[in-house]
Simulated scan of single mutants.
Amino acid sequence: MLTILGHAVSINVRKVLWTCAELDLEYTLDAWGGTSRSTSSPSFLALNPNATVPVLRDGDLVLWESNTICRYLAARYGDGALLPTAPGPRAQVEQWMDWQATDLNSAWRYAFMHLVRRNPAFSDAAAAEASAQEWNRRMTILDGQLAHTGAYVAGAEFSLADIVIGLSVNRWLLSPIARPELAAVAAYHERLLQRPGYAAHGANGLP
Rank of each mutant, 00 (worst) to 15 (best):
N136L: 01
D143V: 00
I165R: 14
L160Q: 09
S168L: 10
V185K: 06
A151W: 06
T140D: 11
Y198L: 10
L173M: 11
G144Y: 09
L142F: 02
G150E: 02
Q133P: 03
S175T: 14
A130V: 04
E134C: 12
I141T: 15
A187N: 11
V185Y: 00
A147T: 08
R171D: 00
D162I: 07
R179P: 03
L182I: 01
M139C: 09
A183V: 09
R191I: 05
E181V: 07
N170F: 00
Q145D: 02
Q145E: 04
M139T: 03
D143I: 00
I165S: 08
V169Q: 07
G150V: 01
A130W: 01
L193A: 15
R137S: 04
T140N: 10
P196D: 13
A147V: 03
A151C: 08
I141R: 15
H189E: 14
R137C: 00
H189V: 13
E157V: 11
S131M: 04
Q145I: 01
F158M: 08
A132V: 02
A183P: 00
A147E: 10
A156T: 11
V153W: 04
R179E: 02
L173V: 02
G144M: 07
Y188T: 13
E190G: 10
E190H: 13
E157G: 10
P196Y: 12
G197W: 12
A184L: 08
D143N: 13
H189I: 07
G150A: 11
L182V: 00
A130Q: 14
A161G: 04
Q133Y: 02
V164G: 04
I165D: 01
A156L: 11
A154I: 02
R137E: 00
L142R: 03
A151H: 13
Y198S: 14
G150Y: 02
Y188D: 11
H148N: 14
L192S: 06
P180I: 00
L146Q: 09
T140P: 08
G144T: 01
V169T: 08
L142K: 04
A156E: 12
A186C: 09
H148G: 08
V185I: 09
R138N: 07
Q133R: 15
S175Q: 14
Y198E: 12
Q133D: 10
Y152E: 07
A151P: 08
R179V: 01
I163H: 12
A154N: 06
P176N: 10
S159V: 01
E157F: 12
V169I: 10
I141M: 15
L192P: 08
Q133K: 15
T140R: 14
R179Q: 10
I141G: 04
P180A: 08
V185D: 07
R179G: 02
E129L: 12
A187T: 11
L146Y: 05
I163K: 13
I163F: 09
L160Y: 09
A161W: 03
L182T: 00
E129M: 12
L142H: 03
A156M: 09
L160I: 06
L192F: 05
L173C: 10
N136K: 03
I141H: 14
I163R: 12
P176M: 04
A178M: 11
W172P: 06
R195G: 05
P196L: 07
E134P: 00
N136D: 11
L167C: 12
I177N: 10
Y198K: 12
Y198D: 13
Q194T: 14
L160M: 11
A178I: 05
W172I: 01
L174I: 01
E181W: 05
G166L: 05
G155Q: 05
A183Q: 11
